[in-house]
Design a protein around this nucleic acid. Structure first.
Length: 419
RNA sequence: GGAGAGAUGGCUGAGCGGUUGAAAGCACCGGUCUUGAAAACCGGCAAAGGGGCAACUCUUUCCUGGGUUCGAAUCCCAGUCUCUCCGCCA
């Protein structure tokens, strides 16, 4: 969320910066609400002061006057809180401003490739898709999932289930032992307020799975990414700058409705309602966001290097970035069956955007209270890593060789074969 | 599911109708002392919002929302959350 005080300072600059997002906002309305809001606050405060003074005198003859004032305060207060909530409503739906580094654009076609790494495999046969391979092995069962649950779910079985677990554990080990992240096993449900903090609510409610608990308890949502729950660790906190940066890693299932992606990636397990993801989150001093973004992105690509998977790094254009991000790198892995790169990680700096929503602050060395910077990135999406391994490490007979670094996690298995 | 207890500043924890924005301790910052550090002693230290170029000043905030009152952290009602005991259970 943006700070209205800062918007006020340079209203036109804000409107201009937001244009990069190609978002339609009624700026005049915003401006007017802010002015009205402050006028009413001033009115209210004048009356409150009067009332307070009367109370201090303890003069009985003034008590009735005080009562009158109370009534006017109630009325003004009603108006003011209405205006304030309208104002907040607009503010909470405005996305983060793109950083200057971010290229201008409206769709993914304007994203810019920065680097390419790894060697694209050269097959002597036509490479199969992950779902062909998985089904042939009898280890990916989409039909069964359709029977028990519905579309966009999958049963991962046998050695592929082991592979999935190995991927997860391998990534966690690297991030905790080499990259300095603290491992967390978090709740998979988040409260409404938590979802607001990272920006999933209110604007993207239709993408979320809501879960009904007992009557009376607040609304709960299945996390669409561990980012939500990990970032909110610092919600409502005022941290000491010495405790920063904080770095968390978790491997969790993620749940997404994928509303609006009907007909997209319907085959296979590219786009599922439920998938595992190893997520990285950093809480930093606000000036360190961009450095941390580079560091985090390197942590993600480091995994692909170790797995020997070919990938490229892309910087997202202004129109393709997520709601809370100021700058995002996507890491895309090569999929031989599609002959193209597909997203396997997305690393974003959210500047102070989420911290303002969460009220996550810290005291810097000058004892000033400032909003934290927050970052999140996949390190990596486990399901898509599984896909990438299947496709890139497939052999002519449909068996899969296991990347060397994963073998210790799989009883030194070298190959997944039909039987 | 049954029975209780609680929610106060960065943290711990007093207060239970009128200078209480809030005692005390810890943490933190500054100073004295010390070769340096520690200890000891002295001093400082909440957040949000409004007004002002600024010094500064005003308002709000003791879980949330209502109510009583001239006045509420303190009394009443509702809600949320947390904890303890019993039952059930991975």
């Amino acid at each position: 969320m943006h700070n209205i005080k800062e918007i006020r300072n340079d209203f036109d600059a804000f409107a201009q910066a937001l244009k990069k997002r190609s978002i339609d906002i009624d700026f005049n309305k915003l401006k007017n609400l802010d002015i009205q809001n402050r006028e009413l606050i001033q009115k209210k405060e004048t009356l409150e002061k009067k009332k307070k003074d009367i109370s201090k005198t303890k003069d009985k003859s003034l008590f009735s006057k005080s009562k009158e004032i109370s009534q006017s305060i109630v009325m003004i207060n009603e108006q003011q809180s209405k205006i304030k909530s309208d104002l907040d409503k607009i503010l909470s739906n405005i996305p983060n401003l793109p950083h200057d580094d971010v290229p201008l654009g409206s769709t993914e076609n304007e994203n810019i490739e920065l680097t390419k790494s790894g060697k694209i495999p050269n097959f002597e046969f036509t490479p199969k898709s992950h779902y062909e391979l998985g089904e042939k092995l009898g280890m990916l069962d989409f039909d069964l999932a359709t029977k028990t649950t519905g579309s966009r779910f999958v049963f991962v079985k046998n050695k592929l289930a082991l592979l999935e677990r190995a991927i997860s554990n391998f990534m966690l080990d690297i991030h905790t032992s080499k990259n300095g992240y603290e491992e967390i096993s978090p709740p998979l449900l988040a409260s409404e307020n938590t979802m607001f903090g990272t920006g999933q609510l209110p604007k993207f409610e239709t993408d979320q799975f809501e879960v009904k608990l007992d009557e009376g308890s607040g609304r709960k949502f299945l996390i669409p990414t561990a980012e939500v729950i990990l970032t909110n660790i610092v919600k409502d906190k005022i941290l000491d700058f010495k405790t920063l940066p904080m770095r968390f890693v978790a491997s969790t299932p993620c749940f997404r409705k994928e509303a609006g992606s009907y007909g997209k990636d319907t085959k296979g397990m590219i786009r599922q309602h439920q998938f595992y993801k190893v997520e990285l989150v950093s809480i930093v001093e606000q000036n360190n966001c961009l450095d941390e973004l580079e560091r985090m992105t390197n942590c993600a690509t480091g995994i692909l290097d170790l797995l020997e998977l070919p990938y490229r790094k892309v910087i997202l254009c202004s129109g393709d970035m997520g709601f809370s991000a100021e700058k995002t790198y996507d890491i895309e892995v090569w999929l031989p069956s599609e002959k193209k790169y597909r997203e396997i990680s997305s690393c974003s700096s959210c500047s102070t955007f989420q911290a303002i929503r969460m009220k996550a602050r810290y005291k810097n060395s000058n004892k000033e209270t400032l909003f934290c910077g927050t970052l999140n990135g996949s390190g990596l999406a486990v399901g898509r890593t599984l896909i990438a391994i299947l496709e890139n490490f497939q052999l002519k007979d449909g068996s899969i060789s296991i990347p060397k670094v994963l073998r210790p996690y799989m009883n030194n298995l070298e190959k997944i074969t039909l039987n």
